[in-house]
Simulated assay, not measured.
Amino acid sequence: MSASNPLKKFVEKVNQYPAPISAFLMTKVFRHKVKLAGTTSIDVVATDGQQVEYRMKNRKKVQNHIGSVHAAAMALLAESATGFIVGINLPGDKLPLIKCMNLNYVKRATGDMKAVAELTDEQIKLLCEQEKGEINVQVKVTDETGIEPVVCEMIWAWVPKRS
């Protein structure tokens, strides 16, 4: 029997509210727990427990020298989305850890950024059943024109929490 996950319970509860309220509440909690995400004003748009959508507006504080979202901010967006979807699907007695971030910047970004991360049914089953392991979490980062300026590979591991 796997341990209860308070983050998953929270997401399930707030998803009962209308979408704007749900997104607002998840964003507030996420920014509170992940301080850098609060600094960069990452928004949680929505999640169904298997997929999550995050957004980052192209504000001055996340821009590079040419006025687009900085490469490090795009990496944070992808890592945040994948970490959230892993975090809500792990049993409460497991700890998620980013193991590898491979990012290939292939085009110049324009405007606001969006990241959509998702897990397969098989991956969720692994997270729930294996004491420790790792998975490659799919994430697509796009700009406001719909292009994918960065191609990401995010490998997440999990281990038992220490008592």
Rank of each mutant, 00 (worst) to 15 (best):
S163I: 12
L127K: 04
G133Y: 04
L25H: 08
Q130I: 14
M1T: 15
R31G: 00
Q130N: 15
P91Q: 02
W158L: 00
K61S: 13
L97P: 03
L76S: 06
L36P: 07
I66T: 07
F24Y: 11
K8S: 14
K57C: 12
E122W: 04
V159K: 09
G111S: 02
G87P: 01
I155E: 03
A73I: 01
E53F: 11
Y54D: 06
I98A: 07
D143R: 02
I98S: 01
K60T: 08
I135Q: 02
N89W: 08
A75V: 08
A71N: 04
S2N: 15
C128D: 15
M56V: 04
D48K: 07
G38T: 05
N58R: 03
V141D: 00
R55W: 06
V137S: 11
K61Q: 09
I135D: 03
T47D: 01
L90V: 05
S68R: 11
C128G: 15
G146Q: 09
V44Y: 00
C152D: 02
V116I: 15
S22N: 10
V11K: 02
V11A: 07
W158K: 00
A75N: 06
I85N: 01
V150A: 09
V137T: 03
Y17M: 13
V14F: 09
K61Y: 11
V150D: 05
K61L: 04
S80K: 04
D143C: 05
K61I: 10
N58C: 11
V11P: 02
K60C: 06
E118G: 15
W156V: 03
